[in-house]
Nucleic acid binder design. Structure first.
Length: 886
RNA sequence: AGGCCCGUAGCUCAGUUGGUUAGAGCGCUACGUUGACAUCGUAGAGGUCAGCGGUUCGAGUCCGCUCGGGCCUACCA
């Protein structure tokens, strides 16, 4: 089949993907004898469209999956989507509001709203599926999962029940992070901090105290003043009770307590304690048995307890209250200071800490069997990384992970939204409670109205996706039975790699470890590969407001193809590091794809009419041997880089091996008839090219597959074997000889360029081979063509007006006439100087006894060889200068 | 306040356990290109590896400090 002028990505990519999918190339077999390689795709939210964050995730996971599949593993990549509770519900509510339904929760009711959200999700999941396909993801669509699938929901309920019975889940009234906008609690990890450089800090006259606060309105709910037990300033007040009448009411009664947690250095050293609206204050209040007075409601407005301020928003109240204090002379000071405001990562609204009865996971209770011991969730989290059961890439992220564990508190898992897994708990009256996946199945029970944190179900993702859906229909099976009888779980879990952004290390990665070790007794994955953020060329987050530097993956796939997008996101990218993607990079990616396409055209031409089935090991010409050995050396290097998770590096190695060695050197060399006509050249060219095609495939799957098929190679590249390394060190004399030939060509070209020889002018060269003589002579036609020589003699004669080059393997001379004499002398002197400098360097090292004694023998031997080589070079240069009459 | 990362060519970044003359892409300069090349090729310029000190026969690489930049975490009210 004739190659088209260019790779027509728009029509070909979709067609190639269809063929892969139809051929079953993505499907993994749980009964296979091959070692498993498993990746759970981090489920993209079932809202919106694919962005570059998804793209990098898909590209990295796909290249790992394709690589391991070719390398002989039973590779399974499980795709799926997440119901993304808060994100989805708020998106749909906003849409409904735009349609004119002011308060969809009230207008539609729970059942109808959930139905509408599900409908919306179903639609956008279709969009995401096609976009994941568009990028070339070779995931097993038959195993596609969704966090709300029946068997996944079953797992959620089962785990909840198990944790409840083990006392790891409890319900309690505690300070929680309340988002008044979304009307729900959120976990500690869902809080973001925004810098407020000029926040106001007020100091109030507060009975006998001066008390500092950034939120004066909360002082309406104070029930104590806490001071440090050793603080002399306030010692006399400890234990006393004061009634403090605020100017317009209410009057609060405060007790003075001593607590170590108060920092005497901060402010006045006296802390107004607001137990109902501050975490620390709540803890102090608990320790001292202080009363709680909630003054802020869930709507973000002041409660009746706030007296005359009831009904105001917190900010309105602050303003009014401060004005009243000032009028009454109770405002001692107002200054500005930098403060970090807590906001919800989703709604970006300020968080209101308040007290609410919620469900929590206890991270400190020693109730988890792990390695024969009873540990707390926190201890297990620490142990699996400490012991190396789980490896983080890059490794320094482990420090961040441990830091997070150190600060970890009980995880609030209940949410007041409707979209999600409803808490599997039923109540009857005040006393009775039922926990389980089936429900109590009797009259008079009411299910808990809250839903679970979306990360609760995501935390089960590596294994809940592997539970057999049919099996899960049997409601009588317990969790351990579901696990023990699911073939996919048995074959593919623990998964091999979790690849995701470092920004969700805590949200998700840590939670998966926490839940999975507990629920299955296994780690969820062996390795966590964390990629960085994709930024624009200036290192800033891409936004639609900066279209000139913003890149949309869908546009790129349409305009350039998926391959250029993929390769340009991988080359130069490394784990844990943010990556700047620019139009220039995409351009370079496109050029690479184009280069590969054109090389294929030439290879096909070279290979025309030759024979199939030639064993590469039987090749004899040095140039052909050289490229075969080189290609396999690249394989060896790439294997090492891939295994070390250095995918960008691996891609770069493939790129440069292909471009410089295969294209610029080999393909140019075999254009000479002496080689082109050699039957084995067809075998060598196609063998080496196939090696590069295979190496490239995980990175740029579409164009490589298209070439593979157009060249009539057997089967599909996606299922081809990863190339071996057996010929990596073969034919070293030939390989070194051709290396010398290439250096000779480069030397001759340099002479031409430096001496301003017309590009078209053919010159006469004379060469004396000092090593690899046979090989170099065998390559004479190649040298003549690549250096554009009229004639090449091997007598080594140096005419009077020649310009020369010396190398350990050869001396070369090009006769350019007398005019170049002086320039030649100059050049030789420079080269001699350089050789002498290097000789002095290596001589100094070898003269150093400590070096000879301590350095590794091969290093010392290398230095000796270098010294010998340089001495030879120096001699040649000096001789040549003498001939020139210096 | 604590933790982590980064500082290498004009720009973006590699540089694997310390070991010859520190690399690539893009950009730049000069030249070339009617047959694989929406181009590509050939040759070239360009770096006191942020600074200081230490360990070592040997440091871009290991250790300490300083300066500069970024990120994360926290119950300084």
């Amino acid at each position: 089949m004739a190659f088209s002028k260019h790779f027509e990505h728009q029509e070909r990519e979709a067609e190639i993907y269809r063929r892969w999918e139809e051929s079953g190339a993505f499907k993994a077999d749980a009964r296979s004898e091959k070692p498993p390689f498993t990746i759970s795709m981090p489920p993209p939210n079932a809202t919106g469209t694919l962005h570059l964050g998804h793209a990098i995730m898909l590209v990295l996971e796909d290249l790992m999956t394709r690589w391991r599949r070719m390398a002989g593993d039973e590779a399974l990549w499980v795709p799926g989507t997440d119901h993304a509770a808060i994100a989805t519900e708020s998106v749909v509510i906003r849409l409904l509001q735009k349609e004119g339904i002011a308060d969809p929760r009230i207008a539609l009711g729970r059942e109808e709203l959930v139905r509408r959200i599900a409908e919306y999700v179903e639609k956008s999941r279709g969009t995401i599926r096609s976009q994941v396909r568009g990028i070339g993801a070779s995931c097993d669509w038959e195993r596609e999962r969704y966090t709300m699938d029946a068997q996944l929901s079953r797992c959620v309920a089962e785990v909840f029940g198990k944790m409840f019975r083990d006392g790891l889940i409890y319900r309690g009234a505690r300070i929680v992070n309340w988002d008044p906008g979304l009307q729900t609690t959120i976990s500690d990890d869902e809080i973001e901090h925004v810098e407020q450089p000029h926040a106001k800090f007020y100091t109030l006259r507060y009975g006998p105290f001066l008390v500092g606060t950034s939120r004066p309105e909360t002082k309406l709910g104070d029930t104590a003043v806490a001071v440090h037990p050793d603080d002399e300033r306030w010692k006399e007040h400890i234990g006393k009770v004061y009634d403090i009448p605020w100017p317009k009411g209410p009057t609060i009664r405060i007790r003075v307590v001593a607590d170590e947690r108060v920092d005497p250095e901060f402010g006045t050293g006296a802390l107004g304690v607001t137990p109902a609206h501050s975490q620390l204050d709540f803890e102090i209040a608990e320790a001292h048995g202080l009363p709680l007075i909630p003054i802020i409601g869930e709507d973000g407005r002041m409660l009746p307890a706030a007296g005359p301020y009831a009904g105001l928003t917190t900010l309105e109240c602050r303003e009014a209250f401060v004005a009243d204090l000032e009028a009454a002379g109770l405002l001692a000071e107002v200054k500005t200071y930098p403060q970090r405001l807590s906001i919800c990562y989703r709604s970006k609204q300020a968080i209101e800490p308040l007290i609410k009865a919620q469900w929590f996971i206890d991270v400190n209770k020693p109730a988890v069997r792990w390695k024969g011991k009873l540990m707390s969730l926190r201890q297990v989290l620490r142990d699996v990384v400490d012991s190396g059961d789980i490896q983080l890439v890059p490794k320094h992220q482990e420090a961040t992970y441990f830091h997070w564990i150190d600060n970890l508190r009980d995880w609030c898992i209940s949410r007041q939204i409707w979209w999600g897994h409803r808490i599997p708990v039923w109540y009857r009256g005040e006393q009775e409670i039922y926990v389980g996946h089936r429900g109590p199945g009797a009259e008079g029970w009411q299910q808990d109205t809250d839903t679970l944190d979306t990360w609760f179900s995501s935390a089960l993702w590596t294994w809940s996706t592997l539970i057999d859906p049919e099996l899960a229909k049997d409601q009588d099976l317990g969790l351990s039975q579901l696990l023990a009888q699911s073939p996919d779980f048995l074959k593919f879990h623990p998964t091999s790699v979790m690849e995701t952004g470092y920004d969700i290390l805590f949200f998700w990665v840590a939670r998966m470890i926490l839940m999975t070790t507990y629920a299955t007794g296994q780690v969820p994955f062996r390795t966590v590969y964390l990629h960085g953020l994709i930024l624009d060329r200036d290192g800033e987050k891409m936004t639609k407001s900066k279209p000139e530097t913003s890149i949309d993956p869908l546009d790129t796939i349409r305009d350039l193809g998926a391959d250029p997008l993929r390769i340009s996101m991988v080359i130069g990218n490394s784990a844990g590091t943010d990556f700047r993607l620019s139009a220039e990079r995409l351009e370079a990616g496109k050029h690479l794809v184009n280069k590969l396409w054109n090389a294929a055209k030439l290879v096909e031409k070279i290979a025309q009419g030759g024979e199939d089935g030639v064993d590469p090991a039987s090749i004899t010409h040095p140039v052909n041997r050289w490229i075969v050995a080189r290609a396999h050396r690249v394989v060896d290097v790439v294997n090492g880089r891939m295994a070390a998770w250095s995918f960008g590096d691996a891609a770069e190695q493939i790129r440069s091996g292909f471009w410089s060695e295969f294209c610029d050197e080999y393909l140019e060399a075999v254009k000479v008839p002496e080689l082109a006509d050699l039957p084995e050249t067809r075998a060598a060219a196609r063998h080496a090219f196939d090696v590069f095609l295979k190496l490239f495939h995980p990175f740029i799957p579409f164009v490589t597959e298209e070439i593979w098929q157009q060249l009539g190679r057997p089967g599909m590249l996606i299922r081809a074997d990863w190339p071996g390394t057996e010929l990596r060190d073969a034919w070293s004399e030939d390989v070194d000889g051709v290396d010398a030939v290439l250096r000779l060509v480069a030397a001759l070209r340099r002479i031409r360029s430096e001496s301003r020889v017309e590009p078209k002018a053919q010159v006469a060269a004379s060469v004396r081979a000092l090593a690899f003589t046979d090989r170099m002579k065998a390559c004479e036609p190649v040298i003549r063509k690549m250096a554009n020589l009229e004639s090449l003699s091997w007598d080594g004669a140096v005419p009077a007006g020649a310009v020369t080059a010396v190398d350990p393997a050869f001396q070369a001379a090009v006769d350019l006439g007398e005019a170049n004499r002086e320039a030649e002398r100059e050049r030789l002197r420079k080269e001699l100087e350089d050789a002498e400098r290097r000789l002095a360097n290596v001589g100094k090292r070898l003269a150093n006894e400590a070096f000879v004694r301590n350095a590794k023998p091969e290093i010392v031997e290398g230095a000796r060889a270098e010294e010998r080589e340089l001495q030879g070079l120096k001699g040649t240069l000096e001789e040549r200068l003498r001939e020139l009459g210096v």
